[in-house]
């Protein structure tokens, strides 16, 4: 099987921070890989290496068989990238932004005009096309940035957190556009902090944390790693979290997730629910919720890393 993207053992350090600590991954041609990880996991660093913006300390990366380090100019012709923050020129209009990119790809003028019209239409920016981007909303900037990354009809597309900061409706619309692109055969590497986004858009998911890929597979495969199902406990009083944790350790291996929920792999199925209820009652911990459910990617994250995605983010900024 020919892979559109092949990454082997990438390492990049900033002082004592190992931003990438041996990242290895592949994306088959025409498929979507979701690179899922919390703040500081190394998602942007990976994308920057793959799009020729950053030289790694060591490791190898090829895109469509082109070595990222040896032949970056050839690579730049066939890829598209939309970075974590929309890189649009605020003093130019939407159309001028796309035409500028087209001219720097050295496309013929007629082709640039045609392509700009087409992309503006596709991203619902036709009406705003001759307005200066400084007056665009966040969602419009994102869409324009994505349009700019498609000017050269890239065969491989890199999107770094494409929907972060968008409201739910804009996010949904952007997802639909991305799904369209994939239907047309574009290979996509997408980074995200949203488990739901990876679940919806990606064929396969690579979970990345502290510069390493710690798990890889389809969303179902990853959920199976957690086991058939999980038991979730929510103490009525969040201050009881610690006591609930201690009590539950008698019957399982609880981890604390977002919002004070405690999650345990339900190795013994429904029986664990009864046992959990019993130990909690003995410990005198009042609970507002106790449930058995299919694991979400959130649970996968918790189990694999020992911390939740958002929790890691909080630690990062602390």
């Amino acid at each position: 099987m020919e892979h559109a993207v092949e990454v082997e053992d990438l390492v990049k350090t900033y002082g004592s921070t190992r931003a990438l600590d041996g990242v290895t991954l592949q994306v088959p041609e025409g498929r979507v890989l979701g690179l899922l990880g919390p703040n500081g996991a190394g998602k942007t660093t990976t994308v920057r290496v793959l799009t020729t913006l950053l030289r790694p300390d060591s490791g190898r990366a090829t895109v469509l068989g082109i070595d990222v380090l040896k032949d970056p100019d050839r690579l730049r012709r066939v890829i598209g990238v939309a970075g974590q923050y929309a890189a649009v020129d605020e003093l130019l209009t939407g159309r001028e932004n796309l035409v500028l990119v087209g001219r720097l790809y050295h496309l013929p003028r007629a082709e640039i005009t045609r392509r700009a019209d087409e992309l503006l239409e596709r991203f619902e920016l036709t009406e705003a096309a001759s307005r200066v981007v400084g007056g665009y909303s966040g969602g419009m900037r994102r869409r324009l940035d994505l349009a700019a990354s498609l000017v050269n009809r890239p065969r491989v597309l890199f999107l770094d957190e494409p929907t972060t900061g968008l409201d739910p409706r804009s996010r949904l619309r952007l997802w639909e556009v991305i799904e369209d692109l994939v239907r047309d055969g574009t290979t996509l590497l997408l980074t995200t902090q949203y488990l739901e986004e990876a679940d919806r858009l990606a064929d396969r998911i690579a979970v990345i944390d502290t510069g390493k890929v710690i798990a890889e597979g389809t969303s179902d495969e990853l959920k199976d790693k957690v086991g058939g199902s999980v038991v979730v406990v929510r103490p009525a009083d969040p201050a009881d979290g610690e006591r609930a944790m201690v009590a539950l350790q008698a019957v399982g291996d609880p981890v604390r997730g977002t919002g004070g929920d405690l999650t345990m792999q339900a190795t013994t199925g429904v029986a664990l629910v009864t046992e959990a209820a019993r130990v909690l009652e003995e410990a005198g911990v009042a609970i507002s919720e106790l449930a058995l459910r299919r694991p979400t990617l959130d649970d996968v994250f918790l189990t694999l890393t020992g911390h939740g995605a958002e929790q890691a983010a909080a630690e990062e900024t602390a």
Binding site: Y85, A87, D89, V101, L104, Y105
Partner: peptide, 17 residues
């Protein structure tokens, strides 16, 4: 600061431009 330089660097254009 606005990431425009990154956009340019991802294009197959002359570095000096």
């Amino acid at each position: 600061a606005k990431g425009i330089v990154d956009r340019f660097r991802s294009l197959p254009m002359a570095r000096s431009a």
